[in-house]
């Protein structure tokens, strides 16, 4: 097992944890956390696929004489965009969760039919 396999394994585990959380939890906050974990897994997958054996960070320094050892810089540049957009969506999702809590007095997803029945019963 070389290092890229390890990256892929970790990425897969994070991805599965994220999907498991999204599908089974009812708490909106936990769902947002699961989305973030899933996103970390995808980022790690894409960056890990750009790794080559004995790769160096793609920065030209005085000690870097052999540029053919550099890992692929393009996925890292794309993942930078992905991380920032993930921050934006998380912030927006947290605010939407806050408004949801103000309206429904709970952070869980509620079944709207159940809620209507309860109102009728009351």
């Amino acid at each position: 097992m070389n290092l890229t396999d390890l990256f892929l394994l970790q990425a897969g585990i994070l991805f599965l944890i994220g999907i498991f959380g999204i599908l089974t939890r009812k708490n909106i906050f936990k769902i947002l956390m699961s989305i973030n974990i899933l996103q970390t897994g995808v980022n790690l997958l894409i960056v890990g696929l750009g790794y080559i054996p004995d790769g160096k960070a793609p920065i030209i320094t005085e000690s870097s004489s052999n540029l053919s050892l550099f890992v692929d810089p393009l996925p890292q540049a794309l993942i930078l965009t992905s991380i920032v957009i993930g921050f934006g969506t998380t912030a927006l999702g947290l605010v939407v969760a806050l408004r949801y809590h103000q309206k429904h007095k709970t952070i869980d997803f509620v079944n709207i039919d159940d809620e209507k029945e309860n109102e009728v019963c009351e």
Partner: peptide
């Protein structure tokens, strides 16, 4: 395929290649 520290005259002049892409 020759890029070294202190060079000039390339298309783009930043040492961090990820930054040069972004």
């Amino acid at each position: 395929k020759t890029v070294q520290m202190g060079d000039s005259g390339h298309e783009e002049g930043s040492a961090n290649i990820v930054t040069s892409i972004v």
